[in-house]
């Protein structure tokens, strides 16, 4: 099932029953690593959901931005999962999460240089060959700047797209948070972003903060992010849009309302 250009949510098993009446929720996203198990209730429930909804598989563990070679065992597990689930698409992050055999369960940052660009393009090529399909790469949330960066993030992403043929996942919350944390204009970033390559959008909300805002996926999408989103959609037309909420999970009706707000914008109706 292809991903419809409408609203989706991150699938949580506790919402499985509520999804009998999905409202504006028309597709689901899963974290691929959560389903890299041999059997049991998780896979059984996912198989059931995949009968009813298009699924987007979102990886968090490939460490595409890392210095180490990609983990071939992990790539094989990913291929196995994608062959079984047949999701509409697969996405991963412009970040690293493993080093020297240790996995940090987090998305860690990298400088944007000619050398890191070569490395990431090689990794994206390897992933696309291993899974036999085009992948999407997601822009990160930044909390610090690297002195050795020579390219902007948008130029870096555009070069990856051009060299590997991959698509992009545009996380507008990440753009908003990076802009706040590093002191730039989110609108300037989005003007420079290669929107033609975007195959999916992420929206989320964060916990309140002062000096630094953390990408916590724990709150409703904020009004500034909705405004940026409406601007992007006005330029791109409708795109599959995920409400990403992973911590302090609300009841399903709240997620439904967030999905409905995205659906209104996608339909060209002011939210």
């Amino acid at each position: 099932m292809p991903l419809p250009p409408s609203a989706g949510i991150g699938f949580k098993p506790q919402h499985a029953a509520a999804l009998d009446n999905p409202g504006a929720v028309s597709w689901l996203e899963i974290h691929a690593e959560n389903y890299m198990v041999e059997g049991g209730p998780r896979l059984a429930l996912l198989a059931e959901m995949a009968q009813r909804f298009a699924i987007s598989a979102h990886g968090v563990g490939l460490s595409i931005g890392g210095e180490d070679p990609l983990d071939s065992a992990h790539l094989a597990r990913l291929r196995h999962l994608l062959d079984w689930l047949k999701p509409a698409q697969f996405s991963e992050h412009l970040a690293w999460s493993s080093h020297g055999g240790a996995y940090f369960n987090d998305l860690l940052p990298l400088p944007y240089t000619a050398a890191t660009l070569d490395r990431i393009c090689a990794h994206v090529d390897t992933v696309q060959q291993a899974i036999g399909q085009r992948m999407l790469l997601e822009n990160p949330t930044s909390y610090l700047r690297f002195d050795d960066s020579t390219l902007s993030e948008t130029a870096f992403l555009a070069a990856i797209v051009q060299r590997t043929g991959c698509g992009l996942l545009l996380d507008i919350e990440n753009v908003f948070l990076s802009a706040q944390n590093l002191g730039f204009e989110a609108r300037d970033y989005l003007s420079a972003f290669p929107l033609d390559a975007v195959g999916e959008i992420h929206l989320a909300g964060h916990a309140p903060g002062e000096d630094v805002l953390i990408d916590s996926h724990s709150a409703p999408v904020g009004d500034p992010v909705w405004a940026l989103y409406a601007d992007v959609i006005a330029r791109t037309g409708p795109l599959p849009t995920l409400i990403e909420w992973d911590a302090d999970l609300p009841e399903f009706a709240i997620l439904q309302a967030e999905a409905a707000r995205a659906a209104h914008i996608l339909q060209g109706v002011p939210a």
Binding site: E33, N34, M36, H74, R77, S97, A102, F104
Partner: peptide, 11 residues
């Protein structure tokens, strides 16, 4: 003992 794999189900 940091994880040796990205699969948290058994960490």
């Amino acid at each position: 003992h940091p994880p040796r794999s990205p699969i948290m189900a058994l960490y």
